[in-house]
Structures are given as C-alpha cells and as structure tokens.
C-alpha cells in the first residue's frame, strides 16, 4: 500500500511540474527551465523547515515565492530571444542552477548532527513530515490538495479571458500586439506563474523524499516537464494530467521490470509518439470529439 501512496506522491509532484510547463507553452515559449525552478523551490523550502524551523505551509509558500521571483527575473532577458534560442537559454539556466547547488554548502548543527545542503552530497535529513508524525497517506493527500488547487486555478484561467490572451500570444504575437495585448506582461506573467507552481512542486518533492541533490534536477527532468504538456496536448490542463499519469504511472512503474533498459525505452517511445501523434495525445481534434462524446446529442457548452 505504501508503495502506491509513494507513487501517488510522485505523480502529484510531477503533475505540478507539467502544469508549470503547460502555462508557459501556451504562450508559445518552449521552456526547459522547469527543473531549475523545481530545484530552487526544493532547496529553499527545505532550508526553511530544516534550518529555520518553519512550519511546512509557509515554507512551501516562501519557496514558491522565491522561485517565482527568479522566474520573473529570467523572463525579462528571455524575452529578447525567441523560439529555439529560448530553449537553449533555459537549458543553460537549468544547468547553472544545478551546478550552483552542486557547489553550495550551508550547514548548521542540530544536536549532534549537521544539517543543510552540502554541495555534491546533497541536502539530507529534510524530515519535517516524519518528525511531525505525518503518515504517508496524509502526505499524499497534502500534495494532491495543492495539485487540485493548481489544476483548478489553471482550468479556470483557461476559461477566462486570460486563457484566451495566453493562447493568442502563443498563436500569433503580431496579431496579439495589434489588438492591444501587452506581450511582455503576458510572457513574463506566464513564466512567473510557472515558477511559482514548479517551486511549490519542488518544495513538496524535497519533503517527501527527505533527501535532494543536484543530480535530481537535470535536463532529463526538464524534458519530462515539457513532455507532459506536449504529449498531453495543449488544449486542456487535463491532457497534461493524463500524460503525467500515463508516463509516470504506466511507463515508469509498469516498465520497472525492464530495469536499466527503461530509460532507453523512454527515448524510443518519445520518438515514436512524436511521429504518430505530433499534436499530442489530447490534441484539439481529439478533445472536441471527447467533448461531443460526453455531452451527448444536443449537448451544449
């Protein structure tokens, strides 16, 4: 049972990663920065509960806020480059963050042991949940509570004018500008929101795994982050969620018996998926068909 709860925790945190990438991809910016945001949120929230003794909720909030600020800061120079240059810039950002934490030490004494991040060794003993008697189930529900919140917020955004504006920017920047949309504000806001969501995910990740290190926040993680919305299709947040469940739940766990060959299969599956369904699992056409299926004859909006 604990195994499935652990899996659910992973799914929840990856869902936040995917949603973070989703909102930026809507505006047409391809970002590989999510792993970097994740890392910042993880370290900040971890340090706040472990070193400063904060309660988990304000720690998560602070981690999310710090990440959002960093995201906002890098969004501005990122505006000066478009499209694929942005991919490279965000890859470099992610790597820079990882390397930063690889070289980052901040330890304090807690009783007889030292706690805090220790460069390449990572950050161990993030034991807020065990120390406060949280059961695995409670942690899992806690995580999914946040996921539900993020899903709700993004779903609502999709239905509001903000959602239409985000997508308009993603489709045609020139047309968007010409009808009064402030491109800078939209793109920076999207990146900032993404930073907040990914930072939150990172903070949760740090606490349920209790041990984080720079090696967890690699290009591969950033790839998963954008793979979820791309595989899931950008028409709906639920596509991203479905992709997370499919990739992490089915592929990662279901194919665990393959052992080391699993990673190889991922690569191959991604290539296959992109050739067979280039617009994602839940692209606009499929989404429309599903809607009609559920709405039934005479169903309306």
């Amino acid at each position: 049972m604990d195994f499935y709860l652990g899996l659910a925790q992973t799914l929840g945190v990856h869902a936040l990663l995917g949603l973070s990438a989703y909102i930026v991809l809507l505006t047409g910016q391809v970002t590989m920065a999510q792993a970097g945001f994740f890392a910042i949120g993880a370290y900040v929230a971890g340090m706040l509960t472990v070193i400063a003794g904060w309660h988990i909720v304000p720690a998560l909030a602070a981690g999310s806020l710090v990440t959002a600020l960093v995201a906002c800061a890098i969004a501005f120079p990122a505006l000066r480059v478009r499209g694929l240059m942005l991919v490279v810039a965000t890859i470099a950002f992610g790597e820079a963050v990882r390397l930063f934490f690889f070289n980052f030490d901040y330890q304090v004494w807690r009783g007889e042991i030292q706690v805090g991040p220790l460069g390449g060794e990572g950050f161990r003993q993030i034991r807020y949940f065990p120390e406060h008697g949280w059961s695995t189930l409670e942690v899992m529900l806690f995580i999914w509570g946040w996921v539900a919140l993020a899903l709700a917020a993004l779903w609502w955004t999709d239905r509001s004018r903000t959602g239409a504006v985000l997508r308009a920017v993603g489709e045609d920047e020139i047309a968007a500008q010409s009808v009064g949309v402030n491109l800078t504000a939209v793109k920076v806001s999207a990146m900032t929101a993404a930073g907040a969501i990914a930072g939150l995910g990172g903070g949760l990740y740090a606490h349920y795994t209790t041990h984080i290190e720079q090696g967890s926040f690699t290009l591969v993680l950033a790839t998963f982050a954008i793979a979820y919305p791309i595989l899931g299709g950008l028409s709906s947040v639920f596509g991203t969620l479905a992709a997370v469940l499919f990739v992490q739940g089915f592929l990662v766990e279901g194919l665990r018996f393959l052992g080391d060959w699993r990673n190889l299969l991922f690569g191959a599956l991604i290539v296959l998926a992109m050739n067979l369904r280039p617009r994602g699992l839940l692209d606009a056409a499929t989404a429309t068909r599903l809607k009609r299926l559920f709405a039934g004859p005479g169903g309306a909006r």
């Binding site: 004018r161 239409a164 997508r167 489709e171 010409s178």
Partner: peptide, 20 residues
C-alpha cells in the same frame, strides 16, 4: 491585416474577447 491574422485555434468569441 492584409493576410488575415486571426487566432485560428480560438473561437470567434475568444478572438473578440482578446481584443476587448
């Protein structure tokens, strides 16, 4: 625009909404 630049993947309503 000379060559129509609508937001093709958005609905009629959404196209107007963005401009509002």
């Amino acid at each position: 625009f000379q060559n129509i630049r609508l937001f093709g993947q958005l609905t009629v309503w959404q196209n107007l909404w963005v401009a509002q």
